[in-house]
Amino acid sequence: MEVRTIKVFTTVDNINLHTQVVDMSMTYGQQFGPTYLDGADVTKIKPHNSHEGKTFYVLPNDDTLRVEAFEYYHTTDPSFLGRYMSALNHTKKWKYPQVNGLTSIKWADNNCYLATALLTLQQIELKFNPPALQDAYYRARAGEAANFCALILAYCNKTVGELGDVRETMSYLFQHANLDSCKRVLNVVCKTCGQQQTTLKGVEAVMYMGTLSYEQFKKGVQIPCTCGKQATKYLVQQESPFVMMSAPPAQYELKHGTFTCASEYTGNYQCGHYKHITSKETLYCIDGALLTKSSEYKGPITDVFYKENSYTTTIK
């Protein structure tokens, strides 16, 4: 009895394709271990004539594949690729409408935090270190965002349907971005203890939790000093293409032309909904596939993004 075979390709990165001759009487799992086709788990399936010449994702289970996976995804987590594939199996079914010149995501599976993050990423200057993220990001900007969303979920250790947080998501993504040249110098002034300067680099240099107003941050924000008295913390120097200011959701007025974009969060910790506000020729609110415009805006804002380049204080 002759062994019926077909020729397929296996890959971990969709760049390096490895030619395989597979036995049609055995499952993919018996031949390769966990195997995925377009995100779908085909591990328990036997090869079919229609699979001839198709590319299958496999887990990096030998040295060659491990090197290829690390170079593309910059992670050695053995569960990463499987999590990416199972997320992709959902995100490829989502709709990605162009809204006001940006790629958004039609609401499904509690994905409003991903839509808000995706919209924000198209408006701030950011370059990702893992080629996987950078490639998928370019495709997302062009309207094909399924891979990018699935990668975000995998890097953030999230599953489809789980509630997510924009600030946490951005923080994970910033860790995989090139923020080497970003720098922030802060000064804390206390009447009792004097003053202390701190220099922050990388992710810490672009994120701040405690106030939404970048102007206020430049002037000074009140913080408790270690001595128990009130101290003032203010920005001395900022070198970065953008800054992200966050605070627990509270009524906040966004003035046209003073910011790049913002995240609105309605609801409580267990259950809520994100919308995205962007400042173009007027203010726009993007909620999944829905767009509304207004000249002014007041609502429960939790993150505001500002364009920056270089700032030095005039406070002496």
Score class of each variant (00 low, 15 high):
244 M>S: 08
172 Y>F: 12
221 V>S: 03
156 C>K: 00
259 F>H: 06
153 L>F: 04
246 S>V: 00
115 A>G: 04
313 T>R: 14
83 R>Y: 03
91 T>P: 03
122 Q>V: 02
122 Q>F: 00
144 E>G: 06
279 S>M: 03
303 D>M: 01
219 K>R: 13
161 G>C: 07
211 T>E: 13
252 Y>C: 12
99 V>H: 14
208 Y>F: 10
40 A>M: 14
158 K>T: 10
17 L>R: 13
95 K>D: 15
150 A>S: 02
149 C>A: 06
21 V>S: 12
301 I>W: 01
55 T>R: 10
123 Q>H: 03
83 R>V: 03
273 H>I: 05
161 G>Y: 01
268 N>L: 15
255 K>A: 06
199 T>C: 11
246 S>A: 03
263 S>C: 13
68 E>Q: 09
81 L>M: 11
4 R>P: 12
223 I>T: 12
118 L>K: 03
219 K>A: 11
163 L>E: 08
242 F>C: 03
142 A>Q: 13
187 N>M: 15
58 V>Y: 02
69 A>N: 07
272 G>P: 06
306 Y>R: 03
179 L>F: 08
314 T>H: 15
297 Y>P: 01
304 V>D: 00
252 Y>F: 09
87 A>G: 02
91 T>L: 05
193 C>N: 05
37 L>D: 14
58 V>F: 02
92 K>P: 04
209 M>F: 15
52 E>P: 04
81 L>E: 06
280 K>L: 14
223 I>Y: 06
118 L>V: 09
147 N>A: 09
306 Y>L: 04
277 I>G: 00
31 Q>A: 14
228 G>N: 02
128 F>S: 05
228 G>A: 04
166 V>H: 10
181 S>L: 09
34 P>L: 08
216 Q>S: 08
35 T>D: 15
156 C>Y: 03
90 H>R: 12
151 L>K: 00
256 H>V: 13
167 R>E: 00
206 V>S: 03
77 D>A: 06
243 V>W: 02
92 K>W: 03
289 A>M: 05
106 K>P: 05
9 F>V: 11
55 T>W: 09
157 N>D: 08
81 L>D: 02
200 L>C: 08
246 S>R: 05
178 N>T: 06
181 S>G: 14
76 T>N: 09
127 K>F: 08
304 V>K: 06
196 Q>E: 09
236 V>G: 01
147 N>P: 12
16 N>S: 10
84 Y>S: 04
93 K>P: 07
201 K>T: 15
56 F>D: 06
230 Q>N: 08
122 Q>E: 05
198 T>P: 02
37 L>I: 12
300 P>L: 07
83 R>C: 05
134 Q>G: 04
190 C>V: 01
71 E>F: 06
236 V>N: 00
263 S>H: 15
177 A>L: 04
277 I>D: 03
287 D>N: 00
34 P>T: 13
291 L>I: 13
192 T>L: 09
269 Y>L: 12
213 S>K: 01
80 F>Q: 05
109 D>P: 09
200 L>D: 08
127 K>T: 13
172 Y>I: 15
51 H>A: 07
227 C>V: 01
145 A>P: 11
12 V>F: 08
286 I>G: 00
282 T>C: 09
144 E>L: 06
191 K>T: 14
214 Y>G: 00
67 V>Y: 13
180 D>V: 06
305 F>Q: 00
81 L>I: 14
202 G>Y: 02
311 Y>L: 08
175 Q>E: 08
203 V>H: 11
296 E>M: 04
129 N>I: 06
139 R>E: 14
8 V>D: 03
266 T>F: 01
164 G>P: 00
84 Y>N: 00
105 I>D: 01
239 E>C: 10
195 Q>V: 15
306 Y>T: 05
295 S>M: 15
155 Y>T: 03
279 S>C: 14
24 M>N: 13
153 L>G: 08
253 E>A: 12
114 L>R: 05
208 Y>D: 05
57 Y>W: 12
296 E>G: 08
177 A>N: 07
288 G>S: 04
227 C>N: 00
168 E>A: 10
194 G>W: 03
158 K>I: 02
31 Q>I: 15
310 S>T: 11
67 V>L: 15
172 Y>P: 01
140 A>S: 06
58 V>T: 09
123 Q>I: 04
104 S>G: 13
218 K>F: 01
27 T>V: 11
204 E>Q: 15
191 K>E: 15
152 I>H: 03
315 I>P: 15
232 T>A: 03
46 K>T: 12
97 P>A: 13
188 V>C: 08
289 A>E: 14
112 C>Q: 01
278 T>L: 08
108 A>E: 12
48 H>G: 11
22 V>Y: 05
18 H>V: 08
132 A>T: 07
259 F>I: 06
161 G>P: 01
44 K>C: 15
101 G>M: 11
23 D>P: 08
283 L>V: 10
251 Q>K: 09
134 Q>N: 09
267 G>S: 15
256 H>F: 12
255 K>G: 09
296 E>I: 08
22 V>R: 03
114 L>P: 05
291 L>N: 09
211 T>K: 02
73 Y>E: 05
53 G>C: 10
28 Y>T: 06
210 G>A: 06
219 K>P: 03
246 S>Q: 07
14 N>E: 15
69 A>G: 06
289 A>V: 07
292 T>L: 07
306 Y>G: 06
242 F>M: 04
72 Y>M: 11
284 Y>N: 04
60 P>C: 06
64 T>F: 09
7 K>R: 14
70 F>Q: 11
196 Q>N: 12
257 G>L: 04
202 G>H: 00
56 F>S: 05
116 T>D: 07
127 K>R: 12
104 S>Y: 09
201 K>I: 09
171 S>N: 13
287 D>R: 01
64 T>M: 13
271 C>H: 13
270 Q>Y: 10
137 Y>L: 10
71 E>Y: 04
99 V>I: 15
73 Y>D: 05
42 V>A: 11
192 T>D: 14
175 Q>V: 00
277 I>V: 11
60 P>G: 06
307 K>T: 13
103 T>H: 08
182 C>H: 08
298 K>S: 14
130 P>Q: 05
104 S>M: 11
204 E>I: 02
29 G>Q: 08
96 Y>V: 07
246 S>C: 03
151 L>A: 06
7 K>G: 11
51 H>F: 01
45 I>K: 14
256 H>W: 11
250 A>C: 14
88 L>C: 02
278 T>R: 04
103 T>A: 07
316 K>C: 15
27 T>C: 10
198 T>H: 13
27 T>D: 13
154 A>C: 08
70 F>I: 04
173 L>Q: 03
82 G>W: 10
304 V>T: 01
241 P>E: 09
66 R>A: 13
146 A>H: 07
26 M>N: 13
192 T>E: 15
270 Q>R: 10
197 Q>A: 10
135 D>Y: 09
178 N>A: 11
9 F>Q: 10
158 K>M: 04
249 P>M: 04
25 S>M: 13
302 T>L: 02
160 V>Y: 00
159 T>Y: 11
60 P>Y: 06
183 K>P: 07
159 T>S: 13
184 R>K: 00
219 K>E: 02
39 G>P: 04
185 V>Q: 05
128 F>W: 09
259 F>E: 00
299 G>D: 04
273 H>D: 03
263 S>M: 10
195 Q>A: 13
144 E>W: 06
173 L>G: 04
232 T>K: 10
251 Q>Y: 15
40 A>T: 13
216 Q>I: 03
146 A>D: 06
284 Y>L: 15
174 F>A: 06
292 T>G: 06
224 P>H: 10
61 N>Q: 14
219 K>T: 10
210 G>R: 06
59 L>K: 10
316 K>W: 15
287 D>F: 00
163 L>N: 05
94 W>P: 03
13 D>G: 05
249 P>L: 01
232 T>R: 09
135 D>C: 08
49 N>G: 11
6 I>W: 05
234 Y>E: 04
105 I>H: 02
143 G>A: 02
284 Y>C: 15
